[in-house]
Amino acid sequence: MEFLSYLISGISLGSVYAIIALGYTMVYGIAKMLNFAHGDVIMVGGYMSFVAMSALHLPGWVSVLAGMAVCTVLGIVIEALAYRPLRSAPSLAVLITAIGVSYLLQNSAQLIWGANPISYPPVVSGTLHLFGGQLSISYVSLVTVAACILIMLALTAFTSKTKMGKAMRACSEDKGAAQLMGINVNRTISLTFAIGSALAAVAGVLLCSSYPTLMPTTGSMPGIKAFTAAVFGGIGSIPGAFLGGLLLGIIESMAKAYLSTQLSNSIVFAVLIIVLLVRPAGLMGKYVPEKV
């Protein structure tokens, strides 16, 4: 029963990683860049929903939507101002810019809300007791897993069935050819940032509801781990982000329970290193040789 409870908390944590990893992987797939500011968009989503709930007294689900709306706009603005001018710049310049944007978001949050952690009112509360109280599952965990599955299904349908979703895949394969089809590549990249950032806001709310403290650096560790999950699953692959996120969450939860709480992060990253040594493209990534 103990094992089952660790497994469930691992799946729930992994679902949050998966939702964040989807943003990393979609942006990488299309813009071929690592958006290291993605983790901090999670934090902005957390603060925005916090403000909506505590200062504006809006109901939980409305504050989620408010967080998503703000983060969507934020994602579009970050892409247009910071990354678009660097479209043909070397990837190192883009990477450093992303790190800069990350610090900018963290420090702006610190200016506005201060450096001290605030306690976050969970959007969903309560616990489900099963087997005569032997197994307790918080409703937040259930909602998190459900949200992750729903998002995964919706994104799969979007990229395989809709015109814009297919255009996104076309852009991620060959931007020049996509332009020759009449696809506006800049607009498609902008849309990808919008979707990824809206998902980051959802992840922010779910994360803060499970671990109810919020501070300007709240997003960095989950961001790095979700990035790890995306690489683990195969960066650029949507099912890979899902699988990588879940596995990472389960490994972390098991490591905490049975090995060592202090070492759990090291164990997570060690697993990543081993997977990449054996499968450099990640679990579901395809190794595509560069054409010359």
């Binding site: 015109k163 297919k166 255009a167 895949r169 076309a170 394969e173 060959d174 020049g176 050819a177 996509a178 020759l180 089809m181 009449g182 696809i183």
Partner: peptide
């Protein structure tokens, strides 16, 4: 420069994007 990971029909649909 076909979209290698998309199906033949999806490639044709992309041609009709406009």
């Amino acid at each position: 420069r076909v979209f290698a990971q998309m199906t033949v029909e999806e490639n044709l649909e992309m041609g009709a994007f406009t």
